[in-house]
């Protein structure tokens, strides 16, 4: 089950990388319009930093969840029933 989730995350990452690569071919600076781009440029581009913090925070949370599950597995192996 964990392997499935891991391979799903890897696939998403690889797809994301191909998106960035595509953007690099078109132009060096992102000047594309559209509702999403307009939103990220509004209010002095504050939403870019909101996104940055969300990515960092979600990364930390994924790390904590992984750690939690690893410790749970060790506890099961050793027969300790933690909380």
């Amino acid at each position: 089950m964990i392997n499935k989730a891991f391979s799903f995350c890897c696939t998403c990452l690889l797809l994301l990388v191909s998106l960035f690569a595509n953007a690099q071919e078109n132009q060096n600076q992102n000047t594309e319009t559209g509702p999403v781009n307009e939103f990220f440029r509004s209010n002095g581009k504050i939403y870019v930093i909101v996104g940055v913090l969300l990515i960092i925070f979600i990364g930390i949370v994924i790390f904590l969840i992984a750690l939690d599950r690893k410790i749970t597995r060790l506890e099961r192996r050793d027969g300790i029933h933690g909380k």
Binding site: L64, L67, D68, I71, L74, E75, D78, I80, G82, K83
Partner: peptide, 11 residues
């Protein structure tokens, strides 16, 4: 984070 730390220490 604290519970993770405690569980690690107990192991």
């Amino acid at each position: 984070i604290y519970t993770l730390f405690v569980r690690y220490k107990k192991l």
